[in-house]
Amino acid sequence: MAAPATDRVTTAIGLANVTVITFDLAKLTDDVERQIAGAIAPARRERAARYRFADDRRRSHVAGALIRRALARSGEDPAGEHRLSAGKHGKPFLPGAALHFNVSHAGDRVVCAVSAQNLGVDVEAVMCPGLDLRKIFSPDERDYVEGGDIVERARRFTRVWTLKESYIKYLGVGLGLPLRDFSVVHGEQLAVIDGAGDSSPSMHVRDWGQYVLALCHDQRDAVCIESATAAELLEFC
């Protein structure tokens, strides 16, 4: 089986219909983190303070800063991050704003996707399949993963996993939709089969060094991916 295309995400400059803002935690200094922590919503700051590990706190702080940047880039007040609410299954939204966004983080990567339409984003470090694929993947998904050599298999597994996670986040159903109940690979195409939505969203997957970034969204146009600097994180904090 041919691999799902990894060049479907078009890198561009400026705010597209869908923008994914990324940050590498290796670029985060203690001073910048302190400034971010002082500006983000108290609820996020307090939640981050309860994390046992410093890296988890750092990811949460940066996620708040990326949300503020995404709001500002979309014409909203970045301070609106203080008014965030969550849906039934925890998907965040800004009451009264015609804006959709989603965050994800893994290892030293933090991402925030924003659009005028519904979306879901997920990022994961490349991981070896340690589960029985028959319990979580469709036959097409298993064929795709098992069609690579031992090294490529890990990347293929992670591509499918992140796409499935991004679809669940797109729906906003949390753990209410088991991974095995739908497929994101159909023959040689990327599409949701037997999912919970009325139609299949646009799906993008991108290899990102030792990570994989996946996105499901309602737009059909190009996606802009931009890397934020530490200075840009502080711009709206």
Rank of each mutant, 00 (worst) to 15 (best):
D122R: 04
F157V: 12
D140E: 07
L71H: 14
L119I: 02
G75Y: 09
G96A: 08
P95F: 07
L119R: 11
E146D: 09
R134E: 03
R153N: 07
I136D: 01
L119W: 15
S85F: 00
P78V: 10
P129V: 00
P92E: 05
E152S: 13
A86P: 02
C112S: 09
V121D: 11
I136N: 01
W161C: 06
E146Y: 01
P129C: 04
E141P: 05
S74D: 01
L133G: 00
M127E: 09
A154I: 12
G107K: 01
R134Q: 12
P129A: 02
L133F: 02
N102S: 04
E76S: 02
E141N: 07
V111A: 10
R142C: 05
G120D: 10
R109C: 03
G130V: 04
V114D: 00
D149Y: 05
V145Y: 05
L133R: 05
L131N: 13
S115H: 15
L119H: 12
H82F: 00
E141H: 05
C112Y: 12
A106D: 14
V121M: 09
E141Q: 05
A98N: 14
H82L: 09
V160E: 01
G90H: 08
E81C: 12
H100V: 03
G80V: 06
N102H: 07
G75C: 06
H82D: 01
K91M: 04
L94I: 08
A86E: 12
Q117H: 14
D108P: 09
A79D: 15
P92G: 03
H100C: 07
G120I: 08
L84M: 14
S115C: 09
A116E: 14
R159C: 12
V114T: 10
P92H: 00
A72P: 09
V121R: 08
R83T: 12
Y144T: 10
H105W: 05
I136R: 06
D77I: 04
A116T: 11
